[in-house]
Design a binder for these strands. Structure first.
Length: 470
RNA sequence: GUCCCCAUCGUCUAGCGGUUAGGACACCGCCCUUUCACGGCGGUAACCGGGGUUCAAGUCCCCGUGGGGACGCCA
């Protein structure tokens, strides 16, 4: 039997990072077993579902790189089918109309809580003989009264729930529209899902769904419930912990590969290996190795992974993802040094693509002022003289290469009898505007001769003016 | 409150009855170094508590405790 898995988000907001992790597990399980991965949009709640959210999910899936073989399938397109199954359940005697009002239900729950009981529907309308036509009614599934439901969870192991804990859940609202627990069951069955991989906030729904599947005479799929991701305060990860929308990670400068890698290792491991490319993820992943305990999201480690990717990914791939940030930050790199060479010079010191894009600006655009701290610290009384000397040496250069530039700088050091520590920093600030850059020879080589000389002249003038005013 | 799940360094984890309890992030040293980083080497740091089972328990069982989840005409 072909393995079939799905990711079934409801479009009521952005694509959550926790959702991405269960999607990843589903995707990996399908890919590993040569199966199919389906994207299904659970939009039966028309009040809260929005087109923007649908777009956000689609955009997120594309950016993160989880490709699906079927879908997106919208549940709102399948209402006829749900109505059919609801009718079947009614005909079989496995469902019934319930006329209890919301007020009655609220009161019932309140009383149960007061009695320290678990709030559940008391089955008042369960055995009503004569359907009362014309009165507003919901339809409830007739859950078995006794016996146990056993879930052989691939991640959590055996979970046993007694039917006494369950109640007759609503499968159709009074307006006739189907509810979640009914639609998932119908869809997972119709779409021939073999493995239901989802967050463990659904474990409580699973026995109900199993009961419905049984009532429909279906063969049960396998279940795997992955634990939630927690924020650093031990609470379920949410907006107040920072970034939870997957697209926020793009905006913050992360590679989708790094995010995926991080999410994979959060709650799963393969020996001591930390870095996994797509092929390795698929090869080594095993749903049964997923940790049953919830884990805490740690941005520091994600940043570390991202650094590893910046350092090692082929330059073209770095460019492909960096471009979005360059555009976003309005930096045009067409006139200036080859972007690939600039990346090579900077990749060992950037944590994120956003940061990388921001730090390479001086290769392509002139800066209007020096970093305040840097100029204060490195532009001293003698600086104008030093920079003038370097300027002369560099001007005389025929070949604008890292090694010749390096020789010229050293010549200045010797001539003025100064250490590199006296010359380098001032030169760096003069040419880049800041106290941080790759090694000077490489930096100047990339900035180019014309720009370098121009900036040096400006710096000499600046240094002279600075002390003339005192 | 009731039911379900979970429990190894601060964090992510390895461990699947016998280990000096391993790795990674973070942190702290040292080295490298023209800045900032990268990198290299080293260090601090954990089996929630109590009972069992066993020659032997981080590993198996039970009870506590702690944390998470669920209890909607949401999904």
């Amino acid at each position: 039997m072909t393995v079939r898995t799905r990711f079934a988000p409801s479009p009521t907001g952005y694509l959550h990072i926790g959702g991405v992790r269960t999607a990843l597990y589903s995707w990996l399980h399908a890919r590993k077993n040569g199966g199919k991965f389906v994207l299904r949009i659970e939009d039966t709640d028309r009040e809260r579902s929005t087109q923007e959210s649908v777009d956000a999910i689609l955009e997120g899936m594309e950016w993160i790189g989880l490709d699906y073989d079927e879908g997106p399938i919208f549940q709102t397109d399948r209402f006829d089918r749900y109505a059919e199954v609801i009718q079947q359940l009614l005909d079989q005697g496995d469902a019934y109309h319930c006329y209890c009002t919301r007020e009655e239900l609220d009161e019932m729950r309140e009383q149960q809580r007061a009695n320290k009981e678990k709030p559940r529907y008391n089955g008042k309308c369960r055995d009503l003989k004569d359907p009362k036509d014309g009165r507003e009614a919901v339809i409830r599934f007739k859950n078995p009264v006794d016996g146990d439901v056993v879930i052989d969870d691939l991640i959590k192991g055996k979970i046993v729930i007694n039917n006494r804990e369950l109640d007759d859940l609503i499968i159709a609202r009074s307006d006739g529209t189907p509810t979640y627990n009914l639609t998932v069951v119908v869809d997972d069955l119709d779409m021939k899902m073999t493995h239901i991989i989802r967050g463990d906030d659904h474990v409580n729904n699973t026995p109900r769904q199993i009961n419905m599947m049984k009532a429909l005479g279906a063969e049960l799929p396998k279940f795997a419930h992955a634990p939630m991701i927690l924020g650093d305060d031990g609470k379920r990860l949410s907006k107040r912990h920072g970034a939870v929308s997957v697209m926020q990670y793009r905006d913050d400068g992360f590679f989708p590969q790094a995010v995926l890698n991080y999410l994979l290792r959060l709650g799963w491991s393969h020996g001591d290996q930390e870095i996994f490319n797509r092929e390795e993820m698929i090869e080594f992943f095993n749903i049964e190795n997923v940790n049953g305990a919830p884990s805490t999201f740690n941005t520091q480690k994600l940043i570390w992974l991202n650094e590893q990717y910046i350092k090692t990914l082929p330059v073209n791939e770095v460019i492909a993802h960096l471009q979005w940030h360059l555009d976003n930050q309005n930096l045009d790199t067409t006139n200036g040094p080859a972007l690939g060479e600039v990346i090579e010079a900077h990749r060992d010191r950037a944590k994120t693509l956003k940061e990388l894009a921001a730090t390479i600006r001086y290769y392509y655009e002139d800066f209007s002022e020096y970093d305040e701290k840097a100029s204060k610290k490195h532009f001293k009384t003698a600086t104008a003289n030093i920079l003038q000397n370097v300027l002369d040496k560099l001007t005389a250069l025929d070949s604008w290469q890292a090694d010749s530039i390096n020789n010229a700088i050293k010549a200045t050091c010797e001539e003025l009898e100064l250490g590199m520590g006296k010359v380098g920093p001032a030169l760096r600030v003069a040419v880049t505007g800041s106290a941080v850059s790759p090694s000077l020879d490489i930096t100047l080589a990339l900035v180019g001769k014309d720009k370098t000389l121009e900036r040096l002249k400006a710096a000499v003038a600046f240094a002279i003016a600075k002390y003339a005013n005192l």
